[in-house]
Simulated scan of single mutants.
Amino acid sequence: MHYSTVLLLASANSLVTATPVSRRAAVTKFPSGTSWDIVLNDGNFDLAGLKAAKGDVLDIDLFDNTADGKTWIKELAKTKKVICYFSAGSREDWRPDAKDFAASDYGKELDGWKGENWLDVTSTNVRNIMKKRIEAAAAAGCSAVDPDNVDGFDGNQDGFSKDASVYADYVNYLAGVAKNNTLAIGLKNALDLIPSVINNIQFAVNEECHANTECDRYKSVTKAGLAVFNIEYGINDCSEPSGVILSSVMKPANQSLDTLGGQC
């Protein structure tokens, strides 16, 4: 992280303390069909490039978002709804707060992602770290957060044998923190959680719903009027099942998210 987390957290805490709930700005809405783009590697783009990105919404990394030592978020937020990505279900050993996790907080490595381990989402310490991240997102000027890896229950890939209800509780906890900081929040993948969290989210983010033949499972999200931001890797499929409105972008087959563009 190229900005001061301490300062950001202090600013967020001051905002929450000083601003009465009735006077806070409304949580940003992301209605069905909202156009978007996502880029999680800042190495190839300058600020002008990101500002010129197609779509009303831009999903970028909460940590890797600087140019010339300054965060891009507040500048981008002048013309975009900025969603700030972070992993809520894993510890990434390269993040600036990686040392804050206790050894008991994390276990199995994510398949194919060296240095990234699944978290125990029931840990009070894990939840406090994520609370700080959300507060930092608010202070940085994000409109929303995109918490990844909340599907550790799927096939017991987290190694903690937590079931879907535990992850639903976790997502709803994160949603409560986001709301307290006037941030929208999305559900990333984890389709089994939709019925349990739909009243607390403002959008969904999916990877490869066409490739996995699961796009039709977003009918309730579209019915609620919420955006479904879909990413497809290496295929060009802009179709929509009946009753579902997708905001799709096509990205390279290697699943890198360091290129802009690809909207339907």
Rank of each mutant, 00 (worst) to 15 (best):
N44W: 11
L9S: 11
S35N: 06
A52W: 13
N200H: 14
G155E: 02
L76D: 12
N181S: 08
A98E: 15
V249S: 02
A67V: 15
K114G: 15
L15I: 11
C215V: 07
N13T: 09
A140I: 08
N156E: 02
T28W: 02
C142D: 03
L193M: 08
R133H: 04
K74W: 09
I185K: 01
I60V: 13
M1W: 13
K78S: 11
T71W: 05
V27F: 01
K81Q: 14
A18M: 10
T222G: 05
I83T: 12
G43C: 11
P96G: 03
K131H: 13
T259D: 03
G55I: 09
T71H: 03
P195E: 00
I73K: 09
K99V: 14
M130D: 06
G243T: 08
V244L: 05
A53H: 11
F203N: 02
S32P: 02
I60M: 05
A227K: 04
V39S: 11
K70T: 14
H2W: 11
I185S: 00
A48I: 11
I231L: 15
V228D: 05
V82A: 05
P241M: 10
V82M: 09
N200Y: 04
L9C: 08
S143I: 07
G159T: 05
L7I: 13
G33T: 02
N230P: 03
Y3W: 15
N128Q: 15
A18E: 15
V145P: 01
A253D: 13
L119G: 07
M130I: 07
L40M: 08
